[in-house]
């Protein structure tokens, strides 16, 4: 069996400024929360190794700037995405209302081959704030919207407390993998971050 290059799964996180995109990514990848993140300007990504059955994948999670004004800069990163995560703050109604814009903008810019079946995942973040008392978007309302958009998986999360973050990203990765297998569209010639020790164990190493 030929040595197979580890697949890269590309995930884009979108949502209004301050909903917790960077925090969610860092909680998932580094298991850390800081209330001192800076506003994201431009884009950055983190990677994490994930295993499914007997295969290892590199999950590449892209964090983008939330302010609308930077979108003309961010869209360059949408291309080749295997899954798109839409995040809103359950305490800010506007951030929920904007989910539709984010979704449509993504579909336009990334132009996936099968937009109707492109995997999205919606996260309602900051459920911990004020013990849930400041919440303005109900879970029911959010789930209804997700259902109307082709049954988008929905999670209520707290990046601060690590609530549901792991679970959400499991589904994100799984859906990204599904999308990647179906489309086989994006397998870039990436640097093997692990140094290739696992794959090349059979060869002679000089």
């Amino acid at each position: 069996m030929p040595a197979r290059r580890r697949a890269l799964l590309k995930v884009i996180i979108l949502g209004d400024s301050g909903v917790g995109k960077t925090s969610l990514m860092n909680q998932y990848v580094n298991k850390k929360f800081s209330n001192q993140y800076k506003a994201t300007i431009g884009a950055d990504f983190l990677t994490k190794e994930v295993q499914f059955e007997d295969r290892l994948f590199t999950l590449q999670i892209w964090d983008t700037a939330g302010q609308e004004r930077f979108q003309s800069l961010g869209v360059a990163f949408y291309r080749g995405a295997d899954c798109c995560v839409l995040v809103y703050d359950v305490n800010v109604a506007k951030s929920f209302e904007n989910l539709n814009n984010w979704r449509e903008e993504f579909l336009i810019q990334a132009s996936p081959s099968d937009p109707d079946n492109f995997p999205f995942v919606v996260l309602g973040n900051k459920v911990d704030v004020d013990g849930g008392n400041s919440r303005v978007v109900s879970e029911k309302k959010a789930r209804a919207w997700c259902a109307s958009k082709g049954n988008i998986p929905y999670f209520e999360t707290s990046a601060k407390e690590g609530l549901n973050v792991e679970e959400a990203f499991q589904v994100i990765a799984k859906n990204a993998l599904k999308s990647e297998e179906e489309e086989e569209i994006y397998l870039p010639d990436t640097i093997d971050v692990t140094g290739g020790s696992q794959q090349r164990s059979s060869g002679c190493e000089c």
Binding site: G18, N35, Q36, Y37, A39
Partner: peptide, 17 residues
């Protein structure tokens, strides 16, 4: 409201270290 909201969010994450 939008501007104030954005500013409120950003000043608390500006050079807090």
């Amino acid at each position: 409201r939008e501007r104030k909201g954005l500013i409120d969010k950003d000043v608390v994450r500006t050079d807090r270290t």
